[in-house]
Design a protein around this nucleic acid. Sequence first.
DNA 1: CTGGGAGTTAAAGTGCACTCGAGGTCAAGT
DNA 2: ACTTGACCTCGAGTGCACTTTAACTCCCAG
Lengths: 137, 137
Amino acid sequence: MTIGELSRMTGLSASAIRYYEAQRLIPIAARRSGRRVFDGRALEQIAVVRLARDAGFTLAEIRQLVNEFGKNRWRPLAERKLAEVRGAALRLRKMARILESLIECRCADLEFCGRAIRHSCREGIRKGDKKRETLRP
Amino acid sequence: MTIGELSRMTGLSASAIRYYEAQRLIPIAARRSGRRVFDGRALEQIAVVRLARDAGFTLAEIRQLVNEFGKNRWRPLAERKLAEVRGAALRLRKMARILESLIECRCADLEFCGRAIRHSCREGIRKGDKKRETLRP
DNA sequence: CTGGGAGTTAAAGTGCACTCGAGGTCAAGT
DNA sequence: ACTTGACCTCGAGTGCACTTTAACTCCCAG
């Protein structure tokens, strides 16, 4: 299988597959006259990476997962990640609540409106509050 | 008020405040012999930025919000953002479900385990699936 | 006069997960 | 022989929200 075929089958771009190889997320493919040749195992390996990625692991964590923790050591990592994901979900729920308050508030002025919400929600300014969520659609 | 005092009061770093000014999220502060001097209004303005940030808006969006949409035009943006936030929350819930399945599965091998989950969840490989969430704690 | 602590600027660096571009190679088809 | 298309490597670029660094300036206390 060529990289193009693998790309079509997985939905990953060819450059992403090369990148995964360089990052040691998948084993280094055999070469035939300089070009990569893949077999069915590559498909399986990419599926594992994809699953982990869909579960919220970073590529650095996935490297750990596939290279160092073959046997059973991935469980604690998964549990830590689950806690992280739940924390992130919690923060998103807070965002949604703020937005809902803003929308349902009748003020025309955002600053005024925000003041009302801060008063009603008791969401003052806290020092050292650095948590931030990014939205990547 | 100096930038250091404002920093202590808001929990933002001085460089973050300078950055917000450069990005026109807050008005350009008056200078006294080269140094910024802030008053109570600065505190209010930073609070608005913070609220918007906590609601999930990017700094570019916040610039729109505070510069161009003074009166009532922020509502559609908030509604769009709410939809985004809900979508992100949905994706996080999917992540949590995957992690829960992995954890409750009895396999020792992640690859094997993943295969089982893919079969049970019918989560095949979809082309052009680029959605990705980042976790920033 | 000296030292220290706060402030200033502009530019570069960070982390993540890729993507893009330049410049080159290879095999098959016309 | 030549073109086409897919592939190769390597380095740089992307977006976000800042932070860090270097090289200064300014004011005050001792």
